[in-house]
Every structure is written in structure tokens, then in C-alpha cells.
Amino acid sequence: MIEANQMLILTAFILIIIGLYIVITKRNLLRILVGVEIIATGVNINFIALSLLKHPGLLDPLPHVLAITSILLDGALVGVGLAITLIVYRKYGTLDIDTLRRLRW
């Protein structure tokens, strides 16, 4: 019998793995951004899940506060990320990560 927190940790772990897979294998900048968001979701769930280890029954408000803050920051992050993507596309006409390598030495 799997307990609730184990279930949650497993979900979070799977989400993080999916996100990492996307981030590593995809070439399109937009897809990578989606991957980053999936990782962030996994991390948020992880916050709540790990809080159950210490205080069963979701009583501790701190992880919730952190998760909400993190969701808020994610929103800002997506905004900035999309803005950068948009500008990159306007400037270089492509979102392919392998052709965008002007930061190399």
C-alpha cells in the first residue's frame, strides 16, 4: 500500500524526469521552456510532499507558502523566458538551439 506522500513524491519525481528529458533532448527553445515549467511543477509538488514527512496532514503552512511563492515566480519566469524567446526569434529568425550559439568563446 502506497501512502499519500509517497505517491506525491513519486509524481514529483516523474514530472522532474519528464521535464529533464524534454530539456535535454529538444532543440526548440519553446519546448525547452515547457520542459523547465514541468520541472518547476514537479518541484512545487515535492515541497508539499516532503512537508508531509514532518507534519502529517498538510498542517504546516510554510511549504504551502513556499509553493505559492514559487508558482508566482514561475509566472514571472515564463514571462521573461517568452519575451527572450520572442526577441531571439525576431533577431535570428530561428528557435533552433544548435544554431543559436553566439555565446561561445
Binding site: L20, V23, I24, I97, D98, R101, R102, L103, R104, W105
Partner: peptide, 20 residues
């Protein structure tokens, strides 16, 4: 330190994985 910056995205991601 700029020599670390290869410009290849996947190499950076491998560093991330290694760190993890």
C-alpha cells in the same frame, strides 16, 4: 572562464545532470 562556454546547449545540460 569563457572557455567553459562552448555554445553547445547539450553540453551545458550534461553539466546540469552531472550536478544533479
Amino acid at each position: 572562464f569563457r572557455y567553459i562556454q562552448t555554445g553547445y546547449y547539450r553540453i551545458n545540460m550534461i553539466y546540469v545532470l552531472l550536478g544533479l
